[in-house]
Design a protein around this nucleic acid. Structure first.
Lengths: 195, 195
DNA sequence: CCTACCGATCGGTAGG
DNA sequence: CCTACCGATCGGTAGG
């Protein structure tokens, strides 16, 4: 429904529309003609803006992975204690997903369809991110605010399981605001690891 | 690596191989020729056993959804209290995923690619299953074993977020046995809803 | 289960 | 960004 007359699209328009379609139908479920249709041009015309279909996926997943990585860097550089750090990670994570729902969905579901070496790079970023959670949990155990004997690796996996599933059920027009969701998730997570 | 000489495949061989490939590469990332290759025959030969590619996905997702539904039916028919019911649901859910990993992965990731009306049917089964969790949580609040004021709908979503993510990280050759995973998940879930 | 195909669609390019 | 294509691959069928 965008104005057609005289409207040329930017490369960014193409990327943003690709994020939406990849999230809705999957990478292999979206053809370049689908993407062109959504923008009001031919599939072949997309190649004036991009080099290839997989380039789009690379760009999208990398951008998503970097959002999470920036959050971890910020929290780890802070002066907060383990409990506050965990709460900041949870709230920040929820914020990224609620603000960039299609980006997160595409990152979580389509990373496996990335070509190498980009797939391995995104997986490595994800592992680094998960390790930030593991570190914060281990620190909390060490200073006694989290349960003694807690398996920090497994617990990081469980916390991220909870957080990453958000893209599967959170909808902006749903009952809860992002802040309410973050609060509820924080409560659940802290209960799960509390001393 | 199956014996090739004189070996004809059953329809079930085709379905089981499809589950594996759909889990690994996704429905749209798996061609009928891929599937034939994995079985040692031509893509076109598959049509001696099945009617269509989407029929395979329908059968696979329906089978998966029914496993979970059977669990819910069994637990709801039991004489257990809410806490024990929740523990049985968690343990049973973990058992289904660890015993049928590719089936669960395909159910969770590929349901959206189902044709209608089958997609809606599977979604309805999933909603019924989720409602079993919601009911058990609400009962537990009513009798005082779960936290007063707990939002049973949201909590059911969170519990299932935790459980369904299992297919993303559980590996049979990983560090933890299914029983250990179930125990850890039960602990985490019960902590999250405890009074 | 293979041979021999089918029309449709795929990602992508040359040239303007 | 369109016109006019390309070879490759898609799901699927007829006939044996």
């Amino acid at each position: 429904m965008s104005t057609r007359t005289g409207s040329r699209h930017s490369r960014d328009d193409v990327v943003r529309t690709a994020v939406r379609l990849f999230a809705e139908r999957g990478f292999h479920g979206t053809s370049m003609r689908d993407l062109g249709d959504a923008l009001g041009l031919l599939g072949s015309s997309l190649y004036a803006h991009i080099g290839s279909k997989s380039e789009l996926l690379v760009e999208i997943t990398r951008e998503g992975a970097e959002l999470f990585q920036s959050l971890a860097d910020k929290v780890l550089a802070s002066e907060l204690g383990p409990e506050q750090r965990l709460a900041e990670l949870v709230a920040g994570h929820v914020g990224i997903i609620t603000d960039h729902l299609d980006l997160a969905t595409t990152l979580f579901n389509e990373t496996r369809h990335l070509p190498e070496p980009e797939r391995s790079e995104v997986v490595a970023l994800r592992d680094r991110y998960q390790d930030a959670f593991r570190q914060v949990l281990a620190d909390g155990v060490a200073v006694g605010v989290f349960r003694p004997g807690l398996d920090s690796r497994l617990s990081a996996t469980l916390v991220l399981s909870l957080l990453n599933a958000l893209d599967r059920w959170y909808r902006p027009d749903g009952g809860a605001t992002p802040a309410e969701v973050a609060e509820e998730l924080t409560r659940f997570v802290l209960a799960g690891v509390a001393a």
